[in-house]
């Protein structure tokens, strides 16, 4: 088992399902939800290390979810995942504190690599802040 927990947020249920199964098959403790609102409720209830957020979602979109997550869990790292990436939104994501900005489609092992790096960053961050 990998020693981190991942929250995946995407309104495309097929995609969410596939990515969850693939991560779980690689021994990652992953949970999926289908909206920004559910994501925010989820992180209030449970502990996660890294979130993978779809940028474009109805209701609370990826950026807003990112902002809310960073407000509530400043140590949690966020990877933005998007099918319609633009430079502008990439810059915005990084500026708002996302760890990475990844274009769909992405190979699952590549994504997992990025999750590991994000988790490493979280660990360094916590160590530095004396937690």
């Amino acid at each position: 088992m990998e020693n981190f927990r991942v929250l995946i947020v995407d309104d495309e249920l097929d995609f969410l399902e596939t990515i969850l199964i693939r991560l779980q098959r690689r021994n990652v403790d992953a949970v999926g939800v289908s909206s920004g609102k559910m994501a925010i409720e989820m992180i209030e209830r449970e502990h996660f290390d890294v979130a993978i957020l779809d940028v474009r979602m109805p209701g609370i979109d990826g950026f807003e979810t990112l902002r809310e997550i960073k407000k509530r869990r400043p140590f949690m790292e966020v990877i933005m995942l998007t099918g319609h990436g633009s430079v502008e939104s990439g810059i915005q994501g990084m500026q708002m504190g996302a760890f990475d900005y990844v274009l769909k489609p992405v190979k699952i092992d590549d994504l997992l690599d990025r999750v590991r790096k994000a988790f490493e960053r979280k660990a360094i961050h916590e160590k530095k802040s004396g937690r």
Partner: peptide, 21 residues
């Protein structure tokens, strides 16, 4: 926050994003 990084890969990610435009 300092951690190990494959610079070429990091740059390539950004290049691919820009390449769409």
């Amino acid at each position: 926050l300092i951690q190990g990084c494959d610079v070429n890969r990091l740059i390539e990610d950004m290049v691919r994003l820009v390449e769409r435009e």
